[in-house]
């Protein structure tokens, strides 16, 4: 358990406020304390004993952790790390949300991970290239098993090992920073060579611990393969498809061109307004902060509806779940699909 923030990371912030317009929770409230700069002011107050650490609880939960503040920061503040530290400091013992404790319990145990994979029609175990491993993801293997199947079908050279735990992103983002790092290292040791993942959030966490050279997010990896894809058609025309960026993939790893280039081959790519903005899934946020999560996504749902898309492609399972739920609630017919599945569909034709 952490007690202090990294002082050098706090010092980085020059309080210019350039992050304010990029922050979804500042947009919702207009309140300084709900902005990245405001939260750093609060962290400094805690660091200097001007404010009790537990006063940070509300803001540490309200923040989506989307890191949209990072690319716009002229001073290079690592806000994502500071947020993880803030949760590490405040979300201890009974202050950790029950849902998070439950999720930890599942992925922390062998039985839990086994249970997530049980009867799941995810990609079958196989040995192929020893230096290229597909990562199933913890909840992704249960919720969206077709994603790993799609990747396995697209690339016979990819190995699929059944002996793999959670990457620890869940822990790192929810107040167990050190444990999250250990889990990433453990996964890195289990899966030698390059780890291929279909989850932007996992990719960002994993690469921050074991190095970007060992981690490939699906769109990054596929784009480099340079295989020409056939357009997917519907009723004799190319499909209309939009993209929802993964926050950590875009803001943490700077990957946003690749998925778009792939989609341009598959159909008519329509840029959804605010595609780069958080969809409100934000890992476990949609479970913990249901109301705020819906407020964050509402404009996006209206925009997708207005564009009359056939598909909205995702690159992270949390976003898939959020958009499926919210589009269904709004009775929008646009189908949410992981980019890997869409690529696999093109190959079939």
């Amino acid at each position: 358990m952490r007690e202090k923030f990294s002082q050098d990371k706090l010092d980085r912030c020059i309080s210019c406020g350039y992050c304010l317009p990029a922050c979804p929770t500042y947009k919702l409230t207009g309140n300084e304390e709900s902005s990245p700069r405001g939260r750093i002011t609060l962290m400094r107050a805690v660091q200097n004993d001007k404010l009790p650490a537990l006063d940070l609880l509300q803001e540490s939960s309200f923040c989506l952790g989307c890191r949209a503040c990072e690319p716009v920061c002229p001073a290079g503040v690592e806000y994502g790390v500071l947020l993880e530290e803030m949760r590490d400091i405040t979300w201890q013992g009974k202050n950790r949300p029950l849902i998070i404790r439950g999720l930890f319990a599942i992925v922390d145990s062998k039985i839990g991970m086994w249970g997530l994979g049980l009867f799941s029609p995810m990609a079958r175990r196989r040995e192929a290239n020893k230096d290229l491993h597909l990562m199933y993801g913890c909840f992704e293997r249960r919720l969206f098993p077709s994603v790993s199947r799609a990747v396995a079908k697209l690339a016979p050279e990819v190995s699929c090992s059944s002996d793999q735990g959670c990457c620890g992103a869940l822990h790192a983002h929810n107040g167990e920073l050190e444990k999250g790092k250990e889990m990433a290292k453990a996964l890195g040791a289990k899966l030698p060579g390059t780890i291929l993942t279909t989850a932007g959030g996992c990719a960002a966490h994993l690469s921050s611990v074991i190095g970007a050279d060992r981690v490939q997010e699906f769109s990054q990896w596929w784009f480099k393969r340079d295989i020409e894809l056939k357009p997917i058609t519907k009723a004799g025309r190319k499909i209309r498809v939009g993209l929802q960026d993964s926050c950590h993939l875009r803001n943490g790893m700077g990957v946003f061109v690749e998925p778009r280039e792939i989609l341009k081959q598959l159909g008519d790519l329509v840029e959804v307004p605010g595609a780069a903005d958080c969809c409100g899934a934000a890992g476990s946020y949609a479970l913990l902060q249901k109301k705020n999560s819906r407020k964050v996504v509402s404009q996006k749902i209206a925009d997708i509806k207005a564009l009359n898309l056939d598909y909205i492609a995702t690159v992270n399972p949390g976003c898939t779940r959020q958009l499926v739920t919210e589009l269904r609630r709004a009775r929008v017919k646009t189908k949410v699909i992981h980019l890997a599945e869409l690529v696999a569909n093109s190959q079939i034709q």
Binding site: E32, E33, G38, L42, L51, E59
Partner: peptide
Amino acid sequence: AVSLQAYSR
């Protein structure tokens, strides 16, 4: 206390 702190600078 949190809001007041945030507007302290």
